[in-house]
Design a protein around this nucleic acid. Structure first.
Lengths: 136, 136
DNA sequence: CGGCATCCCGTACGATACTG
DNA sequence: CAGTATCGTACGGGATGCCG
């Protein structure tokens, strides 16, 4: 993703949609990271129940412990996920989507629906274009 | 972004939503790149008219010539944008969203709306969390 | 004018190992 | 069990310069 660190070349022109701090860009920077959307969906599927870290990990095949931790910390800091620690030994930590998180999930659901309906077309076009290059 | 090169650890478990080739991940890998969503929106704003490369560049403050070129090539290969070259000297190249591209734009519009309505809450939560760290 | 090649840097992400 | 620290790699993406 990488938006930070670039800084203005043309700022605030034509409405703030093109500002580097544009909310849409900020949102994309978040949901674009590899495990965020899957974590949100997994938590949404379980809602309103809480899910333990290890359980979440099992429901997200391929995610490493580190990346799940990083992803959840980020989501928690953004107020999209709530975190509850049971101070036992060993500790048990539970996660759950907040209202804001649930609201985001509906938007992600829209993305998913579109992707399922149209990504095949994109793949097809992509492969066709590659063919032309080979033949060209 | 970076999805390529990881490869399966747990494949096809619990429905293909968790497959590394999951259409949603593929879609996010595309719209997540820095200039894609802005390019789609700018072309959508102009639709059904075509837009020349230089004009597009002017309407996307901050984009470098290289990145605009890369972004448009990617969109074109994916069938989201059509490209027309006028073989004059110097050449003139026109871009326009395809039907598929326009359909994607409606989804992006949903993202934008949510972002404009809720990113402030996320920012707020994020800053509040950072404060706690400083004080803690 | 449009676009590709080259160079360089920051960072997202993975593997591994260590703490409470 | 949950989380952090460290290290290495791959890639997005900016700056610059050259071609048709």
């Amino acid at each position: 993703m990488t938006t930070r660190g670039s800084r203005a070349t043309g700022r605030g022109v034509r409405g703030d949609l093109f500002d580097p701090l544009c909310p849409t860009r900020q949102l994309l920077d978040r949901i674009g990271t590899k495990w965020t959307s899957m974590a949100v969906k997994t938590l949404a599927d379980a809602a309103p129940d809480e899910v333990r870290f290890a359980e979440l990990r099992r429901r997200m095949p391929g995610v490493s412990q580190k990346m799940l931790s990083v992803t959840l910390r980020s989501l928690t800091r953004d107020g999209l996920v709530s975190r509850r620690v049971e101070p036992t030994v060993p500790p048990r930590v539970f996660y759950r989507l907040t209202g804001l998180g649930l609201s985001l999930e509906t938007v992600l659901a829209g993305l998913r629906t579109w992707a399922e309906e149209h990504m095949a077309e994109i793949d097809h076009a992509h492969q066709a274009a590659d063919q032309e290059v080979d033949e060209g």
